[in-house]
Amino acid sequence: MALPLQFKAVQHHLRTAQEHDKRDPVVAYYCRLYAMQTGMKLDSKTPECRKFLVKLMDQLETMKKELGDNESVSQEVVGNAHIENYALKMFLYADNEDRAGSFHKNMIKSFYTSSLLFDVLSVFGELSEENIQHRKYARWKATYIHTCLKEGETPV
C-alpha cells in the first residue's frame, strides 16, 4: 500500500520493519508500532491516512498473535531492552568501523538504522539523555560519511 505523504516522517521506520520481518520480528513489530503511534498523531482524519493506519493496525495485530509467546512483545520492559540492545549493537558496529577508518555503505546504514531504532524506543516512554545523544551522533555520522563517500572525500 502506498504511503500517504503525511506519513513521510515514518517511511524509513516502516522500511526498517520490512527489512527485519525475517531477521528479527520483534524489531519489525516495534518499528511498526512506532509508525502507528506517530501516524495517528500526524493524521488520522483524512480517509487515505485512516485507511493506511487500519491496514497497519491489522498487520500489528497479526504480528502480535504470531509473536504471542515472545516476552519481548508481551512484556514492555523486555521489549524495551531488546530494542535498546539491538540499537546499541548497530551503533557500536558502525562506531568501531568508523574508528578503524573503515568507511562503507554497511556502516552508514548501521548508523542510520540505529538512529531510527532510538526513535522507536520512544514507544516505551521518554528517551534517556544518553539515547538522545546516541541518536543525534548516529544520524549526523550517517549523513556526514555518506556525503564524504559521495564526493570522493575521506571522512575525518
Binding site: 503511534q37 482524519k45 480517509p47 485512516r50 493506519l53 493496525m57 500489528l60 502480535k64 508481551s74
Partner: peptide, 27 residues
C-alpha cells in the same frame, strides 16, 4: 452528508485508538 462523513471519520478514529490501546494493554 458532511456531518455523516465526519461522524464516520470520528468513529473510525476512536476504533483505531481503542485497538491501539488494546495492543499496548497486554504489553
Amino acid at each position: 452528508s458532511g456531518s455523516v462523513g465526519s461522524s464516520v471519520a470520528a468513529a473510525e478514529q476512536d476504533e483505531l485508538s481503542s485497538r491501539l490501546a488494546k495492543l499496548r494493554d497486554q504489553m
